[in-house]
């Protein structure tokens, strides 16, 4: 017989080093933002919003191993939903965010049910089409979205008439959303649901043969990603106060993919880490002027060469470092 330790989940603080270090780093970044000028606050705000978006996308692409090139559609739904309900109809921002997210979830179910029967490249193409269709709708349905002109006058996020008027106040809320998103992601990943997603990512037939409802869980992962995307879109609308179709265009897909792979696809913290790096790196390289883009690309490629699993791939090494330190102390 085995000892109970085989499946025991009791862990010391060192075992959680991989969890609390990113929390501290995020809070440190928040501290930097709160003591900096407006521009850094804006960049960190975008990083937090993209962190929410990428963490959601990670459910579908990382944990479940599927491909979606169209999650920007749900960010657009969230963004325009919040914009129309608040700026157009005077609704409370939080209520608008909840309604927009609910609508996005319903649409994700309706779209995902037939689409997720596809696999591999076909699924990628179908989801890409979803993003393009949404983009076209935001341009053409001018009576609702104001087309290319975009939607302005979106109020900051707030509750019961209290608005977060400064960017720094908003940043605190955005970072809280990002950390909440990662926390939920972490909890779900370690659950039975998370194990089912991992099994699907490993082998769909093997997962099904072990009793995992592959189609059902893929749909749920897609819907969760849509909900995160919608919330990110709503937060963007309230943070900037203006949205246009371009905001939720194909570039959003490319950026979020870069964040996922750079930070560590399939890891809990990777998407947020990637979002911070991809957002801050161009600013850090601004002094290089015309070489800025070249340096940015070289650094991205170098990270992917030396950390093919993304920066979060270093987490086990960090954990090992802590454990080794503890062992040395014990001796």
């Amino acid at each position: 017989m085995t000892s109970p330790a085989i499946t025991s989940t009791r862990a010391s603080w060192r075992d959680h080093a991989g969890s609390w270090l990113p929390v501290l780093a995020t809070l440190a970044l928040l501290g930097v933002g709160l003591s900096s000028s407006g521009y850094i606050v804006t960049v960190l705000g975008f990083a937090a919003i993209y962190g929410v978006f990428s963490t959601g996308l990670n459910f579908f692409m990382g944990y479940t191993g599927q491909a979606s090139f169209g999650q920007n559609a749900f960010a657009a739904l969230g963004g325009y939903g919040s914009a129309i309900l608040t700026a157009g109809h005077g609704m409370e921002p939080v209520l608008a965010l909840l309604i927009a997210t609910t609508v996005s979830v319903a649409i994700a179910f309706a779209v995902g049910y037939p689409t997720l029967r596809l696999r591999g490249h076909y699924l990628a193409m179908a989801t890409f089409a979803l993003g393009l269709i949404t983009y076209e709708i935001t341009i053409e349905w001018t009576s609702l979205t104001q087309g290319y002109m975009g939607y302005s006058g979106i109020p900051p996020i707030g509750l019961f008439g209290y608005e977060l008027v400064t960017e720094k106040q908003m940043l605190v809320v955005l970072v809280a959303f990002a950390l909440l998103g990662v926390w939920i992601s972490n909890r779900l990943r370690r659950s039975r649901f998370g194990r089912a997603l991992a099994a699907i990512a490993g082998s769909e037939p093997a997962a099904a043969a072990l009793g995992v409802n592959v189609a059902g869980y893929k749909l749920v992962a897609f819907v969760i990603a849509a909900a995160y995307g919608s919330v990110a879109g709503s937060l963007f609308a309230h943070f900037v106060g203006f949205i246009s179709p371009e905001v939720f265009g194909t570039s959003m897909v490319v950026l979020s993919f870069t964040m996922l792979y750079l930070g560590g696809i399939g890891t809990t913290w990777g998407p947020l880490v990637g979002a911070v790096i991809v957002s801050l790196l161009p600013e850090a390289l601004r002094g290089l002027k015309e070489l800025q883009d070249v340096a940015y690309c070289v650094i991205l490629v170098a990270i992917l060469i030396f950390a093919p699993r993304g920066l979060a791939g270093f987490a086990p090494a960090i954990k090992q470092f802590f454990n080794r330190g503890a062992a040395a102390k014990a001796e």
Binding site: T7, R195, A198, A199, G202, S203, P205, A206, A209, L210
Partner: peptide, 15 residues
């Protein structure tokens, strides 16, 4: 049909 990147323990728990 093993989950190649998972450990023996993780494979068994998924079983």
């Amino acid at each position: 049909g093993l989950f190649g990147q998972m450990s023996v323990r993780e494979n068994l728990i998924l079983g």
